[in-house]
Structures are given as C-alpha cells and as structure tokens.
Amino acid sequence: MAKVLVFIDTPGPALKKSSLELLTIARSLGEAAVAFNGELHDDVAAELAAYGAGELYIPAAADLNDYLVGPKAAFLAAAVGTSGATVVLAENSAEGKEVAARLGIKLGAGVITDVVAVDPDGTAHKSVLAGSYTTTARATTPVAVLSVKANSVAPEPAATATAPRPVTVELPADATAGAARVTARTEKAASGRPDLSEARIVVAGGRGVDGNFGPLEDLADALGAAIGASRAATDAGWIGHDAQIGQTGKTVSPQLYISAGISGAIQQKAGMQTAKVIVAVNKDAESPVFEIADFGIVGDLFQVLPQATEEIKKRKG
C-alpha cells in the first residue's frame, strides 16, 4: 500500500481543521504518516493518533523556523527518503506551496497546487483561471507532491486509532546553508473568528464600509463567519492585509460569501467566485458584483446589514 506523508508545520496547541483533512485524505490513498516540524503538544499527539498516523517523522534540528522554506524542504526530502512515501500532502498556504515547490525539485517529483480532491489512483482535481475551468492532473513521477486547499473533505478520525511511532530524521549538513534567515517575527493577534481560508461563511467589506467594519463584524458574529476585505479596504488600513481576498490575497470557497460595499473588480472575483452562494449588498445597481450574485441587494450596507443581524439574532433566539 502507498505510503502517504502529511507535512504538518508548527501547529501550536491544536491541529488546524485543514491538517485533519490532509490526514483524512492520506488514509483514503494509503498508509498515513506525518512529517512534523515544531513543538509537539500532547493534544496534537492525541489528534495524530486518532487520525491514524503510523509514523511521526521529526527533524533532528529544532531551528527550521529560523529560516525561510529551504531547510523545511530539505527535512521533508529526508523524511520521504526514510519513509519511502510516494505521495506528499501539504497545506495550500503560501509557505506550504513553496515547501512543496522546492521538495519537488529535490525529489524530481511533480507538484500540483490548489488541489480540491484526490482520487484513490492519485488523480488531483483543481480549478484554474479564477475558477473558470476545473481540471484533473497527475504527477507523472514516482513521487507526487500535492498541496490541498482547506474545506476539501470532511475530517474523519480513523476507525482505529494508532500509536504513532516517532522517527528522528537527520538533515543534510548543508540544509540551512544559503537559506534566508528570519531575524524578527511579530505574531498577529488571533481574532477569535474562524480562519478565513477555512470558514464556512465569509462576510467581506470594501471601500463602501468607509472605515467602519462594525456592521460587518456584528453580522459575522451572528453567523459565526470570518471577515474578509477587498484590497481597497486593506490598502486604506481599515483592516489587516491578511483579510484581503482576491488575486493577490486569499482565495476562498465558502458555502456563503456576503460581499458588502465591494464593486466586484476582476481581481476581487478571482478570490471568491467559487463560493457556493454569493450575496452582494451595494448602493450602485451597475456594480459588476451583481453579475455573479445569487442574491443581490441594491441598498446601503449601513441599513441592510444591521437589520439582517437583528433578524438573525431574533431567529436564533
């Protein structure tokens, strides 16, 4: 049976939902193993066992986070060598994709990014050109490296839990030579809302919010949603750049995307038009966002959103 290696990088005290999804996919393809970087908290170890990880490959060096990308790819290449894995699954974040990219060159392995489903025979499904095409692709090499988008499968624990066997992986002596060093790191405060890439519902605001995300935050809290933004809103400094959705921000595919005060430029659409249901609130009936909205409201977001929030609260009692 194929050995499938899941890369989990510095999860902190609990695994992200996307990591649980990768483990679930790994088991559907073969025997799941984990290449783990960072501090291993007890709860994380328990989750890895519940999700059926056979082995836990851990780098002999503890300083991988002091460098950008290169040394992590060197660790992963060594872990593939030790484990004999033929499929590697990584998170579809910017760094996850870059580690996958370099790993591909080290192993002579095909890399496929933005994967939304993997068939048991290794065929990867993805959508390209801003969601206008769906494609299937395969790595034609002995090892395949796939980065998988969040919300691709429902996470499911293994039928029987495992007791993951720790295996220490030595890094090549030159693993950190010539790598860019991280000399300072500022952690960002957690919002308490769902992670934007993983959220079922996203409420996004643009220039139309005019500096006041309050009504969007209230609606997001009533719906259990994440907050997103257009570039106009992040450039204005009303909200952090990590909230930006679009070509140069995040690509999201939630069940519901509520767009408020966003005109719907092509670069914004690139990040959200694969959402299942799109709702748009905009004062201007001519806004291009209405061309892709399932439910569009021509109106003032400062009237419409608070009224909706009140009604949702009332219904939820």
Binding site: F290, D294, F295, I297, G299, Q303
Partner: peptide, 9 residues
C-alpha cells in the same frame, strides 16, 4: 456564474 435575484432595498 449567472446573476440571481436582485432586489432594491
């Protein structure tokens, strides 16, 4: 994607 229902407030 095609436009769905558009209403005016």
């Amino acid at each position: 994607r095609t436009a769905g229902t558009i209403i005016t407030d």
